[in-house]
Amino acid sequence: MTRLVYFAWVRERIGKAEEELDIPASVKTVGDLIAWLPSLGEDYENALQFPDAIRAAINQEHVERDEPIAGAREIGLFPPMTGG
């Protein structure tokens, strides 16, 4: 099981801030994950319909799309950041 955490409008559209998911072995990278999640339902589809607008972190560090997710404790998905 992998812990997923969502923020800002990704969190709002999915309808939860975090969850534990059993991710199939065929889902190997962050890019695969963002492509697979919409299969879980309409809320995920809606949250991830513009994949280019999604940023990701593994174990609280920014990662690119080709980053392997094997062994990740926590994966965060969120929109581009707007702090400061």
Binding site: F7, F78, P79, P80, M81, G83, G84
Partner: peptide
């Protein structure tokens, strides 16, 4: 760097 990579979001 903070503006583009620190994980904060404004609503």
């Amino acid at each position: 760097y903070l503006k583009t990579s620190a994980p904060f979001w404004k609503k």
